[in-house]
Design a protein around this nucleic acid. Sequence first.
DNA 1: TAGAAAACCTAGTGAAATACTAGGGAATGA
DNA 2: TCATTCCCTAGTATTTCACTAGGTTTTCTA
Lengths: 148, 148
Amino acid sequence: MKLSTKGRYGVKAMFDLAQNYGSGPIPLNSIAQRNSISEHYLEQLIAVLRKAGLVKSVRGAQGGYILSKSPEAITIGDIIRVLEGPIAPVDCVSEEEPEPCNNAEFCVTRSIWARVRDSVADVLDSITLADMLEEEKKRRDESYMYYI
Amino acid sequence: MKLSTKGRYGVKAMFDLAQNYGSGPIPLNSIAQRNSISEHYLEQLIAVLRKAGLVKSVRGAQGGYILSKSPEAITIGDIIRVLEGPIAPVDCVSEEEPEPCNNAEFCVTRSIWARVRDSVADVLDSITLADMLEEEKKRRDESYMYYI
DNA sequence: TAGAAAACCTAGTGAAATACTAGGGAATGA
DNA sequence: TCATTCCCTAGTATTTCACTAGGTTTTCTA
């Protein structure tokens, strides 16, 4: 039940782009540095995000990446599904084309995995990049208050 | 975010033992056969469950395995934690001894993974083997009604 | 009391995934 | 033109997964 670095790095990178939303294209090396991620590896992940339409790229000098939608319109669920595949603790309850087993009708364990899938999806789909920006701001304010 | 066969097979085997609770020790080969699991592999998984105190074994002919507590007292969360380790989508929010990262205090992604962890744990901890027996019974009854 | 049935134990193994690295090419702004 | 940046394919060490192999030990029963 672990997320791989694909999902984790992907969310970090997308959040970084959200923080810089409106400042033109952000080069990948700066994202990689700020988040301590191998640039070459992140390149492969962002290629997947680009092909899925979550980010746009600008080539050449002063190029980089931009969110293709506003932070309010992108959920963590969107990012995770692109990088880790459909949300499902087991294949027989996959969100898309679940692998059928012989007695899916009566399998009691299956209904448990479906509940796990739904609760994970509910959490991830309810959080947008904008929510994260808000949360970040709140934390900074709190930390400021603390030091007064 | 996938469960391995360890967790899946483990839950199936424990549910099988719950269905046979009160009938003395159940030999492993019968559990393996009923659930289409490699007996030798299941042996290794049930050894873990035994060492964790979830099942008791009876050696020798007519021996087998028994739940060490009643089905009401064993949750799916108990089984999953024993076979898959602490519930956590990433190590920094592990239920036991989370790996600290340099800025855990301010990491916004971290709080997302904590919410995922909690929602999964809530589901798994809320379901006992007795609940599964109930659900199984309900399904059988419904299927019986259908065929009248 | 032999022997079958069962649990118990350690080690090996092929396949797949993970988390990268290597080494380029192609577009574009200054 | 040339530095900067994205784009692409391929390779690779490590780890995990899902087993299999081949035993030993305990205990019931005939």
